[in-house]
Design a protein around this nucleic acid. Structure first.
Length: 691
DNA sequence: CTTAGGG
DNA sequence: CCCTAAG
């Protein structure tokens, strides 16, 4: 039982209700990663799970607990304890279970807390003679099915605090989304209850290892914190505490999905559903070469299994399979990475790709994993090029009206709808673009391969018949052609929020100048894609906003690839074995952090502290496929630096001063925090040195 | 793989 | 951003 001891000071300042992040103590102190919370998944059911576990245990217990219950004693507490004891007794399985439960710890602390709180309240009232009937009854129900646990809570709450309940819809309870006010109220109540029943509370909390961490530097207030990138929404509620003006106690609540309807904070990027943002974010991030093999060896066929079970397991854990479930869960991460690597390593095995997609894709016909496969033809595809170039001086003016996409071969079942056809094509194109393209130049029908040649050398001059020149998009790039955005770029564009899915990739337009219309419509119509949009938009309206829809329609822009690919796009794989191998050594393109990103980063660091970059990533940039934790760390580094230099010396998109201030504040706070915990024998050591 | 730092 | 040593 990992029972993080509270610092006495923390106890005082927080009245025992403090739940904050644990600073990353020097490696060892923090324990193995196994204990690391799987923040990225199953957060919704964390609290749920515990309850479920309890319920399950209770069921197994049989009469014992039931009797307990009718007695009106804090069932939850009792059972929780029970579970613990039991777990300790049990061997293997028990351990797993226990660990797993703890694994989830912080994932949904507040959910637990609030739940507990309400439970407490209910108990409280029950003891006072109120709701005597209702409460026990609700509880017994709760033991039967986990869902009722929730409703029970709500019921209790409702009967006692109608006002709150009003704003606390079942959904919100379940998903953990409450409005700031409601949350505040609840939390206040919780706090009250907490104090009254502190001892009991501990019983509840301890087994959960409700992360006891030093107070976060800044606990977001009731306005709630809203990570910009996560698919989850962090709502923090802080309840007033003792005289100490220091850090606040905050219970951070991370809900993960579809909730938030009641929270009033709607943001495209928050409207995501975790189930859809699975592991497979076809991460383009760089992965060390060897790993791929390594992983492949380790878990060859596991992938599918894990993947497929993911959503299910995630949403509907079963008591019985708990062990299995968590095991899988644990596996997931590596699965994710694995996929990343496979991705990186050129081609994804069609099967896997398709399969994993089929799972999340509502559209892709499950029976037809290879709903669409395409093949781009190897050769270059000449393009209709309207060389309307006037020449003046030594400049050659070219006007490219459109590019022709390399030939694509698409297979789709006859039964497929036109919509899905469109989508498939779109995906195919995107996939291809994502796979990398290169621009070829044709002159008099001949390919000019030597990139170093000057135009003149190549024979392209003003007096040249410009009609003789042509461009082509070629699959399989060794992208050195600056013309085409690197896959990451594409991703970026896509994520930047623009809606144009892809502008004009089709042959010369025939009617509409806004080629993107079609595509975007398509996207919009596809729930699936819509989801991605939410998911993948890692940056929310970057202030410095890169692209705007209009931009895309500029006719000069022959190509504006915006790939919805990534994670889930389609069951298509660029047939052209886009060999990215060459790009192995390619430096990633530079993507300056937007203010929004910076803010998200700051927010996350304020809460998690420095030195937990992986967590920060997961928390605030989970959806930003680029932006590795190393990036975040680096960014923080530069932010700190930036903050410490004069504004005049800063470059790039100016970061709001207040953000920088927060950076400094957080930086110093956490470094202190670290210093405090670091020296295990600081006093002694120093003393010695001094003597 | 993650962290932490230097480059 | 990249690269690496450590853990």
């Amino acid at each position: 039982m990992v029972f993080q001891k509270r610092t006495s000071s923390e106890m005082e300042s927080c009245g025992g209700s403090h739940v904050a992040e644990m600073p990353r103590v020097p490696k060892s102190a923090r324990g193995k990663r196994s204990v690391r919370k799987k923040e990225s998944q199953g957060q919704a059911m964390c609290a749920f799970d515990l309850l479920a576990t309890v319920a399950g245990k209770l069921l197994d217990e049989g009469e014992g607990s039931l009797g307990n219950m009718s007695a009106g004693s804090p069932v939850l507490a009792a059972s929780a304890k029970d579970v613990c004891v039991k777990q300790e007794q049990c061997d293997e399985e028990g351990k797993h279970l226990k660990n797993d439960v703890m694994d989830q710890d912080s994932c949904n602390e507040s959910a637990l807390i609030s739940h507990i709180a309400s439970q407490r309240l209910a108990d409280h009232h029950a003891r006072k003679g109120e709701d005597l009937n209702e409460v026990p009854k609700a509880k017994s129900e709760a033991v039967d099915k986990e869902p009722s646990m929730i409703s029970c809570t709500k019921a209790d709450l409702g009967s006692n605090f109608g006002a709150i309940a009003d704003r606390w819809s079942p959904e919100s309870v379940e998903s953990g989304a409450f409005t700031g006010d409601a949350a505040a109220n609840v939390m206040a109540l919780a706090a009250a209850a907490f104090n009254k029943n502190a001892p009991d509370m501990y019983n509840l909390l301890d087994p959960m290892d409700v992360d006891v961490k030093p107070p976060p530097l800044v606990s977001s207030d009731s306005t709630g914190e809203m990570p910009l990138y996560g698919g989850k929404i962090h709502r923090s509620v802080s309840f007033p505490r003792g005289p100490k003006g220091g850090a606040e106690c905050s219970v951070d609540r991370e809900n993960d999905d579809d909730d938030d309807k009641s929270s009033g904070c709607t943001h495209s990027s928050t409207a995501t559903n975790r189930g859809f943002r699975p592991n497979c974010t076809a991460d383009q991030s760089r992965v060390k070469k060897f790993l791929a093999c390594k992983y492949r060896k380790v878990a060859p066929a596991r992938m599918h299994k894990g993947d497929l079970s993911y959503s299910d397991a995630d949403r509907k854990p079963s008591f019985r399979n708990k062990k299995m479930y968590y095991t899988r869960q644990r596996t997931q991460r590596s699965t994710f990475k694995r996929r990343k690597m496979l991705d990186r390593h050129s081609t994804l095995m069609p099967e896997e790709f398709a399969k994993s997609n089929a799972k999340r894709t509502t559209k892709v016909n499950a029976r037809e994993p290879h709903a669409a496969s395409l093949e781009a033809n190897k050769g270059s595809n000449s393009t209709p090029f309207h060389g309307s170039c006037k020449s003046n001086d030594c400049h050659v003016k070219l006007k490219i009206k459109s590019f022709k996409v390399p030939e694509l071969l698409i297979e789709i079942p006859e039964t497929a709808s036109v919509g899905s056809l469109k989508k498939t094509v779109l995906e195919a194109v995107n996939a291809m673009l994502g796979g990398g393209l290169r621009v070829g130049v044709l002159h008099h029908g001949k390919k000019i391969r030597d990139d170093s040649k000057t135009l003149i050398q190549a024979g392209i001059g003003h007096d040249d018949m410009l009609d003789n020149i042509g461009f082509s998009l070629e699959p399989n790039c060794t992208r050195h052609s600056s013309q085409v955005a690197a896959p990451e770029d594409i991703e970026f564009l896509e994520t930047v929020e623009t809606t144009e899915p892809l502008a004009r990739i089709a042959p010369a337009d025939s009617s509409s100048k806004h080629g993107e219309v079609d595509a975007s419509q398509e996207l919009a119509l596809t729930p699936l894609t819509a989801n991605y949009q939410g998911n993948d938009h890692d940056s929310v309206h970057s202030p410095g906003g890169i692209s705007s829809p209009e931009k895309a329609s500029a006719n000069s822009r022959a190509i504006v690839p915006v790939t919805p690919v990534d994670s889930s796009a389609g069951a298509i794989v660029p047939a052209n074995k886009a060999k990215r191998s060459a790009e192995q050594g390619q430096r990633r393109i530079r993507r300056p952090f937007s203010v929004a990103e910076v803010e998200a980063l700051v927010l996350a660091v304020e809460k998690l502290g420095t030195g937990r970059w992986r967590d920060v990533k997961l928390r605030a940039f989970d959806n930003a496929k680029h932006r590795t934790y190393v990036d975040l760390k680096d960014k923080w580094k530069t932010l700190v630096h930036t903050a410490s230099i004069s504004p005049q010396q800063r470059r790039g998109e100016p970061v709001p001063q207040d953000l920088l201030d927060r950076v400094l504040a957080a930086q110093s706070y956490w470094s202190q925090q670290q210093a405090k915990l670091q020296p295990k024998t600081p006093p002694l050591a120093e003393a010695r040195l001094l003597t």
